[in-house]
Amino acid sequence: MRNISRAALLVLTAALAACGSEPAAEPAEQIVVREPSDLAIPPAMNESPTQDTALAEAAATDAVTGIDGEAAFAQCAVCHSIGKGEPSDIGPNLHGIMGQKAASVAGYSYSPAIEAAGITWTEAEMDSFLADPLEKIPGTKMASGGVTDGDERAAIIAYMMDASGS
């Protein structure tokens, strides 16, 4: 990798151009890490699924309500991973979330609201949160309108426990 800083030269051009009120077109500092023609390091991709996600995939349809918890969780999976050790996404990784204190996933940047909530994710707490997240914890970043169907919420919670191997 090349690392060229052309700051000195460019600062001068910027100073000359700064006489007007418009911002200068040129950068004050330009760090060229790599030209597009240079090969990039390929990002780690196509990792094989972990045993946990395999387990999660095998989670059965809820025997009582007939709602497929995994299918119901799909709306959550837009933002949340649940496999063990998977990185947090837009929302935190949910592996083992049930029974944990809120805002406890390391490395995830929570909203001040959820950090201050001081709740533990029991089934009842999770159920009321999923029913209307913004009502329960105003200021949460979880931009979901909530799951109105109680059976569907129960299936999601059961799936979250299954997928965590608990």
Binding site: Q30, V33, P36, P43
Partner: peptide
Amino acid sequence: KIDASKAKTMPGVLQILNMGDFVAVVAD
């Protein structure tokens, strides 16, 4: 002033620019 020491090492990054009124990162 910008400290881009971490950004420079990150995957896909091509350029880091201090445009005066904003900072830009160009990547793959």
